[in-house]
Design a protein around this nucleic acid. Sequence first.
DNA 1: TGTATATTTAACCAGATGGTTAAATATACT
DNA 2: AGTATATTTAACCATCTGGTTAAATATACA
Lengths: 125, 125
Amino acid sequence: MVKYTQTLDLTFSALSDPTRREILEQLSDGTTRVTDLAAPHRMSLPAVSKHLKVLETAGLITRTRVGREHRIQVDPTPILKARDWISMHAQVWQHQFDKLDSYLEQAQKDLAGAKKNGESNEQQG
Amino acid sequence: MVKYTQTLDLTFSALSDPTRREILEQLSDGTTRVTDLAAPHRMSLPAVSKHLKVLETAGLITRTRVGREHRIQVDPTPILKARDWISMHAQVWQHQFDKLDSYLEQAQKDLAGAKKNGESNEQQG
DNA sequence: TGTATATTTAACCAGATGGTTAAATATACT
DNA sequence: AGTATATTTAACCATCTGGTTAAATATACA
């Protein structure tokens, strides 16, 4: 369970940087070489190399050496676990959120009624 | 589109901390007061207060003042956008990943065949 | 062997992050 | 008015993050 949490930490953290998300999108397009991945980004190659290391440490990509080139591939497993974590809670959150909506509506009505009747803002008993 | 990226940055970043994810889970359980949210965490109240601020800035929670208490509520909207971003790419990633699998299998077979035939490890080109 | 290419590592830096304690603010209670 | 409770803000600190440039490493090519 420590592991699970650490995985989510690393995954969400890796996904929090726009450059890294773009890299993951480039990988969708079939780009694999580090130099090619780096090309569109307005930063140095070492900077991109660092981003790749972050993605690799988080397990979001794997690397295969072919001669002097490194071929980068996505491993979607941890990202899907992150999505699962969201999905696991989304329904309850949505429910809570809807409850809040209706609560606020009701509070609005209560307030209007209270004002009309000259009641205080305090709850009774 | 800048906005969209910033939202994802803030959302994934907010989700990358285990304390903040636990807070979101506590909110599922109906906990709302700051003090109650802070109780299970082995850190000071100001530390939790900071985490709440991060969640609030990212738009993951909203806050309603009731007297001296702050009632915290989840807003699932940005989290669902983060999930959407993952979902939008998951299928292609999965496909790429499966392709890699079959590539590696094939390479494994090629290698085995090459060894049997006394071929070198170099590509013949 | 010498040179070019692909990529990482090292050293450095500014700013962000996540924690602390002490103090401030706002509200409630008697 | 005075005290207690709920919460944030301020000031501080160590560590992490994301970038830089220069150098190192590994492979390819002639």
